Computed example of a mutant assay.
Amino acid sequence: MRLNEDPAAFEAFYRRHIDPVMRFVVRRVTDPHLAADLTADIFLAAMDSARTYRSDRGSETAWLYGIARNVVNAQFRRSVREAQVTSRVEGRRLMDEDDLERMEERIDAERQMRGALEAMKGLPEGERAVLELVAVDQLSVAEAAGALGIRRVTARVRLHRARRALQDVASPSAVFMEERA
């Protein structure tokens, strides 16, 4: 079968089988929208697997009903999984106003951090490394200098340059402006 290659062949195939396939589906599904979706899925699956059809193993109708059975059964399995997930969550407190407020604060903080990290990409490697260690990883300047194998004075100079460069960029996060001793 060349359903996926020949639009006329697919149209003829569809017209021959749409009514029986729709009857098959509506006997198993009560929602008309779901029935229409599943019927469309069945014909899409038939197009995708048309090259595997072998007439010596049965009629095209039997082959199509096998596809229909698989599509409908897959939908039932999805419905059961969704119902199980819903039942696990039912009756539980998901999020109250305080939780939502804290979540919004975290999102805002992360948005600022992403902007600041993006601005850091434009810094020279040495300045960015010191700034990352001090501002993101919360090391002291002395610890950052030790981690990078540079003198403390060099780390302070690089940190100062990085902060000055970031001040020229649209309001970086205050985290990058703080310094631990």
Rank of each mutant, 00 (worst) to 15 (best):
R114Y: 09
I107P: 03
F24K: 02
R106I: 11
R151E: 10
R93C: 00
A162H: 06
A170F: 10
L44Y: 03
R81A: 11
S55N: 05
S171F: 11
R77D: 11
I67K: 09
E127M: 10
L3V: 02
Q138H: 14
V157M: 06
L38D: 02
R102P: 00
E90L: 14
D37K: 09
V71G: 01
L38E: 00
V72I: 11
E125P: 00
A162T: 05
A170N: 11
G115N: 13
S140P: 00
H17Y: 13
L139R: 14
A142P: 00
Y53N: 08
R57L: 15
H17M: 08
A68D: 04
R152W: 09
D41C: 09
A40S: 10
E105Q: 10
M177K: 04
V25E: 02
A50R: 05
V175Y: 02
T30D: 07
L148P: 00
Y14F: 14
A74D: 15
E143Y: 07
L133R: 12
M47I: 07
A83H: 07
E125G: 01
M47C: 12
L100D: 01
R156A: 11
N73E: 14
Q112G: 04
N73G: 06
A142D: 10
Y65S: 00
Q167F: 13
P32V: 08
N70H: 12
R16E: 08
T154M: 08
L117Y: 02
A62G: 05
D56K: 13
R69V: 03
R15Q: 09
V72L: 04
N70K: 15
A144E: 02
I42L: 07
E125Y: 04
E125V: 12
A36D: 02
R161M: 09
Q84G: 01
R28C: 05
G126K: 15
V136W: 05
R2D: 09
E127C: 11
G146E: 12
Q112P: 01
R81I: 08
A155F: 01
E90I: 09
D99I: 10
R69L: 08
I150A: 01
V71K: 10
R163F: 09
D98I: 12
D6I: 07
R57I: 05
G126S: 11
V169K: 12
G66M: 13
S140I: 12
Q84V: 06
D41G: 13
D137S: 12
F13K: 06
D48W: 06
Y14W: 12
I67N: 06
A145G: 09
P20V: 10
F24T: 04
